[in-house]
């Protein structure tokens, strides 16, 4: 029954996996940049900035990534930007991951003890020195486990880019399925692909959690 599914298909699928990884990296890097700005804005004393960040985060976290993909894909051409599905998917994923990374990092910054901020003030450090030398190094330790954990979400959600026609691994799998008619094998194979990327990240996230919670004890 499974004779049609061959090594050639695995090869094609691996090619698609490369694009899954590329899209994931774009999402993480650019989503991270925007997310960091959001985190800083979120703890800002300026009410308006913090409010805007809050609104953005609850807007994005209250909408499905799938709909985000559609809105960007159909919306960008309206404002005159003709985009490929790769760009549309990247924009949607960056919006999605920035909101979640923003929340994670904002919470990490906020969970650095108040006294640390005050101590930095007492040492007459400037705002940037306080952030860069005192708060951030501690926040990074708190933020690392959930950030690595969230990478798993990013990788998994790139599968939704297949619905707007980006040729990542899920999209390729649909095509392989259409030609071999062996959905179980095909989707099991790409499930294993995803697992091979995500599981190490999950393990890493848990390990960081253990290391950092021990060192803080």
């Amino acid at each position: 029954m499974f004779t049609n599914f061959s090594l050639v298909h695995i090869q094609v699928l691996l090619n698609g996996l490369l694009w899954t990884v590329i899209l994931s990296m774009i999402s993480f890097v650019f989503g991270g940049l925007v997310g960091f700005a959001l985190a800083l804005g979120g703890i800002s004393k300026n009410r308006a900035v913090a409010g805007l960040v809050n609104a953005y985060i609850s807007l994005v976290q209250g909408t499905p990534v799938l709909i985000l993909m559609f809105v960007i894909y159909f919306g960008l051409p309206i404002v005159g930007i003709e985009v490929s599905s790769l760009v549309a998917a990247s924009v949607a994923m960056v919006i999605f991951s920035s909101a979640f990374l923003g929340t994670i990092w904002r919470a990490s910054l906020q969970s650095v003890a108040r006294t640390q901020w005050e101590a930095a003030d007492c040492l007459a450090l400037s705002g940037w020195q306080r952030m860069g030398l005192v708060v951030l190094p501690q926040a990074v330790r708190i933020a690392t486990p959930p950030t690595v954990g969230f990478m798993v979400q990013i990788v998994k959600n790139t599968s939704l880019a297949s619905v707007i026609g980006m040729a990542e691994v899920t999209y390729i799998a649909k095509q392989v399925n259409a030609s071999t008619f062996q959905p179980f094998t095909t989707y099991l194979v790409i499930a294993l692909f995803y697992f091979a990327i995500c599981f190490p990240l999950s393990v890493l996230s848990r390990r960081f959690e253990r290391i950092y919670s021990v060192s803080r004890r």
Binding site: L160, A173, P183, A191
Partner: peptide, 21 residues
């Protein structure tokens, strides 16, 4: 672990198309 490390879309495909086959 197998559920948390694979996309929902693929899981649904497996249940709908995979199990049917």
């Amino acid at each position: 672990e197998s559920i948390r490390n694979t996309p929902l879309l693929v899981q649904l495909f497996l249940v709908y198309f995979g199990l049917a086959s």
